[in-house]
Design a protein around this nucleic acid. Structure first.
Length: 426
RNA sequence: GGCGAGUUACCCAAGUGGCCAAAGGGAUCUGACUGUAAAUCAGACUGCUUCGCAUUCGGGGGUUCGAAUCCCUCACUCGCCA
């Protein structure tokens, strides 16, 4: 649980590479020297495209934290201005969010990032918002002072831009300009704080180099960038999705229980890589778990460790233990009917739930708890034999909750093997 | 501004007057097998009061007994030309 870098590595650069966190970077030898030397200031930006950060962002946050633990000084940037523009996605133009929404999300994200960094000591972190230096800039100043450093040919070659130009979606001037804004951020932070390194996802590489190039031109200085790999599942699906939804860091959007379950269900083929990236376990621990996956996969020790470590990191140990206890009660071998009201209540509290009465139909309860999205789907699920009420298969789609009330006034609905919801009788 | 091409369900993509609630693939969900894993096989996948009905094929209007398919119009996208 303790957050520290593994002292068995010669320096943080070695450790980042071991953990598979460096996909692309500026000159590796220089970076290694830079990171092994006296403290530097670096930054990583987060755009407010949602009210919460998600697991993809957590990778970046942990890179920041590891660098901070190595003595370097982090600047956590929230994109108050870049969030108003939107970086080009490869598929299609983004819908612009209102200024009010973006401002609100900036607040949420800023607080989330701050939780993972230390604001004490010589290398205390600092949060910045790029709206602070972008908002006062006039269009004329922007074009004269910044635009002149950018060549359109270079801008067109960036993957994000060229993908869009080659697609049938095209790209607006607004999104095309995004890379300039991000480049300006790096320049601004270089000037104000002496920031010499930007980290980010490899999909941001074009934007990262936009900044290093700009500083090169405007300040004749060499600064650095590190791009982390895009994390993918070994089966080819997207990492960080649970039932089609993003896994958020905000407990109101993804409950600690669901968060824990997400990690617990990690594939054997992926679990070691995840441990390297998302935990502070040492190389020794990781190698031991890797052997455990091979020798005794059914024990799922690596998955349990991963789920515990990451959930504790994000939601705290108490919430994690509650999630584990809930899973134990709900997935345990014992009968649900034998659980006492307190245990059951705590377990149900971790699940999505809805109020109902004994007369409520099972299909309606499935819909109310969000286990299905329509009554038709609920009937279909029952017809497929995929619905359980208090661990007993529901055979008839006209069934009601009659007689299903357990201790404390709850019932447990399940869809499939592991999608659970609680019902509270009123 | 001119000319051409295009807009189909979560995504990709067939369909060019009735046999279309709309092929195929992917994603997703369920079942079997399992370790709350993967792979594999099977089924489901617009909604509803489900052997039937209602509403979908960019928006609106029209032709027709009948339209995703034909016509008009608006919006958006892409390309070429200016």
């Amino acid at each position: 649980m303790e957050q520290k870098n593994d002292p068995s590595f010669a320096d943080i650069w070695e450790e980042l590479n071991y953990r598979g966190l460096v996909h692309v970077s500026t000159d590796a030898a220089e970076l290694k020297t830079l990171l092994a030397g006296p403290p530097i200031t670096f930054y990583c930006g987060f755009d407010p495209t949602a009210p919460s950060l998600h697991l993809g962002n957590l990778v970046q946050i942990l890179v920041m934290r590891r660098l901070q633990l190595a003595g370097h000084k982090p600047l956590g940037l929230v994109g108050g201005s870049t969030g108003l523009i939107g970086d080009p996605r490869p598929t299609a133009e983004r819908t612009l969010n209102t200024r009010e929404t973006v401002a609100e999300w900036v607040g949420y994200l800023s607080a989330q990032v701050a939780r993972f960094l230390s604001f004490e000591g010589d290398n205390a972190a600092r949060m910045v918002n790029n709206l602070d230096w972008t908002a006062p800039l006039s269009a004329i100043d922007f074009l004269r002072d910044v635009g002149k450093y950018f060549r359109v040919g270079t801008m067109l070659k960036k993957d994000a831009v060229s993908a869009r130009l080659n697609s049938d979606a095209g790209i607006s001037y607004t999104e095309f300009s995004y890379q300039i804004l991000q480049g300006m951020d790096f320049l601004e932070l270089y000037r104000t704080y002496g920031c010499v390194l930007q980290t980010g996802g490899s999909d941001q590489w074009g934007n990262l180099t936009s900044g290093t190039d700009l500083i090169h031109r405007a300040e004749h200085a060499s600064v650095h960038a590190i791009g982390t790999p895009l994390i993918t599942n070994s089966d080819g699906t997207k990492f960080g999705k649970s039932e089609g939804n993003a896994v958020w860091l905000d407990p109101a959007l993804t409950s600690p229980y669901a968060f824990y379950q997400f990690w617990l269900n990690t594939d054997d083929a992926d679990v070691v890589e995840r441990l390297k990236i998302f935990t502070f376990l040492t190389r020794d621990d990781l190698e031991r778990l890797e052997r455990a996956v091979e020798a005794e996969p059914f024990r799922r020790e690596a998955q349990r460790t991963l789920a515990f470590e990451v959930t504790s990191l994000v939601h705290g140990v108490a919430a994690t233990e509650a999630a584990i206890a809930a899973a134990g009660a709900l997935f345990g071998q014992g009968e649900l009917a034998e659980l006492d009201a307190e245990t059951l209540g705590a377990a149900v509290a971790e699940l999505p739930s809805a109020k109902a009465t004994a007369a409520t139909s099972v299909v309606q309860a499935l819909l109310d708890t969000g286990l299905v999205s329509s009554l038709g789907e609920a009937r279909r699920a029952i017809g497929q034999g995929g619905v359980y009420l208090n661990n007993e298969k529901v055979a008839d789609d006209t069934a009601t909750l009659e007689g299903s009330e357990l201790a404390g006034g709850f019932a447990v609905l399940r869809r499939g093997k592991k999608t659970l919801a609680g019902v509270t009788f009123s």
